[in-house]
Design a protein around this nucleic acid. Structure first.
Lengths: 303, 303
DNA sequence: AGAGGTTACGGGCAGCGTAAGGATC
DNA sequence: GATCCTTACGCTGCCCGTAACCTCT
């Protein structure tokens, strides 16, 4: 009957845990930095070991747990928690090692992100980072899909199993190259509507904010140049293509050198509120440490 | 400093646990069916992983734990207990597998032992047995040294960490070949003292009992042939060398066929009280199962 | 001198990755 | 057709066992 062949391998158990958490073999393979066939084989081995099916991978491309799978998942969680506790008890900060997949919004890349990386490297010399830069909406999806472990994004993510800690606020500013000669007087929306507005990509908060400002006005909406690359946006504004809506903290150098000037505009744009967000659970200690470090660095460098 | 190289391997943790429990690398290697170099390597790996020494193997050929070793041992116990619980939850009886090193007193070998083996094989088809037959005093030492997992011996062992369950009693009988013509009348010690007495080895309970019977008597003590092999003892008695002191249950066939006759002797010898004894602790479930099975079989076959 | 632990070295095998094959929407 | 899981296969690298060496009683 139940051909219980070998003993339950703790290593496979971790894989099983992540397969369930992330809802797929492929996801788990990514998370654990291996390949899908390896995951298949290990899960198959686990099922052989317990003698029954653990996962129903049949219908609607959705994985579901068998009753025994539920039972095993419970043990897996307890075992992983205990292991994590043990590792933590022995590995001082200098001994911590592992891979953290970190998603970062571009604004943060252009402010204090490299400082965070440096601090992390000092505190955890063995830590490896896989860095993905993308817009917040994509980072959020990636975090929920388990493709990244921590995200520094416009948050909070506010999803079950995800922790958020607030980082510093970054004010959005209207900026332009001096050659546009928009002056230093307060400007209204009418004045702005006549030049192109250069800002972040279509799915982002700043883009939506700008769009909302002009919505419902009689005058025709402004031309908005959405751009997924912050460096590119800055270039365009420097070149006088239009006015930019950019987090001022990301262009501190250009503002201080006078290459860009800050316009006084009413109404104000709401500041960007970033969070460090990570999936909670066993083994999330590293992710949490990264998030906490980000919090500390952000506090040292207010937007 | 602490060159924390890799993660703590649960497999090595089990080895570490047994090294501490059994007080030596060699013992642990035996227990886990591997070699001493393998144990050395794994412990060294473990110490590299946590970055500190776990065992002091210096002085007086005695292993002692460092403080970190104590800490790790605690985690090892918790982890192993959890693993054992998980295995038990999944492995129905038919799925149980493992190796049990079983020590057996020879008297039991000659009564119901083969039935026990058969029952065990039926109940746990994947169970492997390593059987050692020896006299009880040696079995006790082997059990305490961790060289065997369960012993069926003249008990109880009555040591910390060792569980005892009583098995059936086996009466010791005075027996002789009919040709000796000792009759069916009650015999006294004087009559017995004139013929050699054949019984178990010098370190055994029956030998000591016989010796004690004649101690303090004026008459010269009897000649006692101590023999470590029960088969050999029976052979000698069958051949008329002398009278035997043997557990009657072990020579049921010979008594029923009339090849040996039971003598009526006063005073009576105390019956042999066997126990099934095993080391308690994580992973002892199999050993306990064997002991319980022995108890059941013994109850079915009273001495 | 003998038991216990370490070091050195060769071979076997588990488990991984690549690549091709279904199945299901 | 795209996505996800499974199967097939060759290979690497880990870990074990054998053997020689060291150390302490």
């Amino acid at each position: 009957m139940s051909g219980s062949a070998s003993l339950i391998d703790p290593r496979s158990l971790e894989l099983f845990y992540w397969v369930v958490q992330l809802g797929g073999f492929r996801r788990a393979a990514e998370k654990l930095a291996t390949t899908q066939p390896a995951v298949s084989a290990r899960i198959a081995g686990l099922e052989a070991a317990v003698g029954v099916r653990l996962l129903e991978r049949g219908q609607r491309r959705k994985l579901s747990l068998t009753p025994q799978g539920m039972l095993l998942l419970g043990y897996a969680e307890r075992l992983l928690a205990l292991q994590a506790e043990m590792q933590a008890a022995f590995a001082g900060p200098a001994g911590v090692q592992g891979i953290v997949r970190l998603g970062v919004a571009e604004t943060i890349v252009h402010t204090w992100f490299s400082l965070l990386v440096r601090r992390l490297h000092e505190a955890y010399p063995l830590l490896q980072l896989d860095i993905v830069v993308d817009i917040s909406v994509n980072l959020r999806a990636a975090l929920l899909a388990g493709e990244i472990d921590v995200a520094l994004l416009l948050g909070p993510v506010a999803a079950p199993g995800v922790q958020d800690v607030p980082l510093s606020e970054h004010a959005l500013g209207w900026v332009a190259a001096p050659e546009l000669m928009l002056g230093t007087e307060p400007l209204g929306l009418d004045a702005l509507g006549r030049v192109p507005i250069v800002t972040y990509a279509r799915e982002t908060v700043p883009y939506q904010q700008v769009r909302a400002l002009f919505a419902g006005r009689a005058a025709p909406g402004p031309r908005i140049f959405a751009n997924s690359s912050l460096a590119s946006i800055v270039r365009m504004v420097l070149d006088g293509i239009g006015v930019g809506v950019i987090a001022t903290s990301a262009i501190r150098t250009e503002l201080e050198s006078g290459a860009l000037t800050l316009l006084v505009v009413t109404p104000l744009l709401a500041p960007l509120r970033f969070t460090a967000s990570w999936r909670d659970g066993p083994g999330s200690a590293l992710a949490a440490a990264v998030a906490r470090m980000a919090e500390a660095v952000a506090n040292d460098h207010p937007g």
